[in-house]
Design a protein around this nucleic acid. Structure first.
Lengths: 210, 210
DNA sequence: TAGATTGTTAATCGATTAACAATC
DNA sequence: TAGATTGTTAATCGATTAACAATC
């Protein structure tokens, strides 16, 4: 294992995929998986797999490959998947409501502990077992639940404001579902989902490939 | 303008962002924007901007920059943003329902024309102005409405089946919100949203940066 | 005109892939 | 043992950045 300070972003993005795959393999009864197996399942080359896993605290064994249980557990450590990361959602519209109830988040270790909306008409409404809270409660909730991750699910024009409030509340990772980029200070990590842009990208690709 | 056959994927992914920015600038009353302005707004270098725009059918003017209206319109052409692309959603759970009603899609030219679910308990339910349809209607609807884009919003274990049915129905672009990758034949373009993996990536990045 | 900014070529950077000795 | 597969170094590829002549 190289003792690199930072994982390259492409590697970091692939690690969750290895983790999910390792779990699947383990559950499926496999004990060992070669770089060839992993590469094939994820659409990568064996070289990429071995390079990627050199960043992870795991050693393969020639002729056998990687122990899937160890692999899974190393990745869970790197990605802190054994911990639960309380998450907040900003925006209680269609998307915000759906995300707040989305089972996959809790299952992945990201239970949504609160939903916020700036519209006082919406505040107080029930979404699953949550009640929509006013924005003024954001900082207090984030501090008391030690929230590090926030999800932005507001219209484009409110996205920057939401990001600013999340940062002010001490959140250091943001998943942004609004269609605009948000600016954040150094040290805050933003991952943009930008679903509309994805659709445009898809059409552009279809247009462009012939 | 280079007459390249295919746009590199990184360029393709940035084009929607230029398009959105160009519209904002135009609406804001600007007529011209230099590569410096664009780069600054999007967090890119001026070199990248000029390289990117060399793939687009637009010419800048030294000392002035790019005409934002022309830029917007060229990008709209490349990304076919002037056309409306009827879209289907597979899965009528929380996420599927929210996506089906998500105003941003229709505003971006991707009106959701139908939602499908394989669960007969859910079929027939109303989601906004849509009624959930059974999977067996997928092919007919896609053919009759000339649907090219499908959104997968089903649990991980059903994602591949949904993808297969979309492909069989003639859809050639897929936005996948399930947490697993799906396999598709050559010629079908898939863009993975993988929100759970994004959250894991965020935590991994925070863990890893110190 | 002088100076700012383009378009494009060349240089750099970083990620992916190939190759192969080490080794189980 | 022989052969498969790792870990790692080197080569390649592609994207980003730098540089600068052309030009408005």
């Amino acid at each position: 294992m190289k003792v690199e300070k930072r994982l390259p972003r492409p590697v970091l993005r692939r690690l969750p995929r290895y983790m999910i795959l390792a779990r699947e393999l383990r559950v499926g009864g496999d004990s060992w998986a070669s770089s060839n197996t992993l590469a094939h399942a994820l659409g990568l080359t064996t070289s990429t797999v071995r390079q990627d896993l050199s960043h992870v605290d795991i050693q393969g064994i020639p002729k056998r490959g990687y122990n899937v249980a160890s692999l899974e557990s190393s990745l869970r450590t790197i990605l802190r998947a054994d911990e639960s990361h309380a998450t907040v959602v900003i925006g209680a519209g269609n998307m915000g409501s759906a995300l707040s109830q989305h089972a996959g988040f809790a299952e992945s270790g990201f239970p949504v502990c609160a939903v916020f909306d700036r519209d006082s008409e919406v505040v107080g409404a029930s979404i699953g077992r949550l009640k929509v809270k006013p924005m003024k409660d954001l900082k207090r909730v984030c501090r008391s639940r030690d929230v590090q991750v926030g999800i932005i699910a507001v219209p484009a024009e409110s996205a920057q404001g939401a990001a600013d409030k999340l940062v002010a509340a001490g959140v250091s990772g943001i998943l942004n579902l609004a269609s605009v980029q948000v600016r954040v200070p150094e040290g805050v990590y933003v991952s943009d989902a930008r679903l509309e842009a994805r659709l445009q990208e898809i059409v552009g690709a279809l247009q462009n490939q012939e």
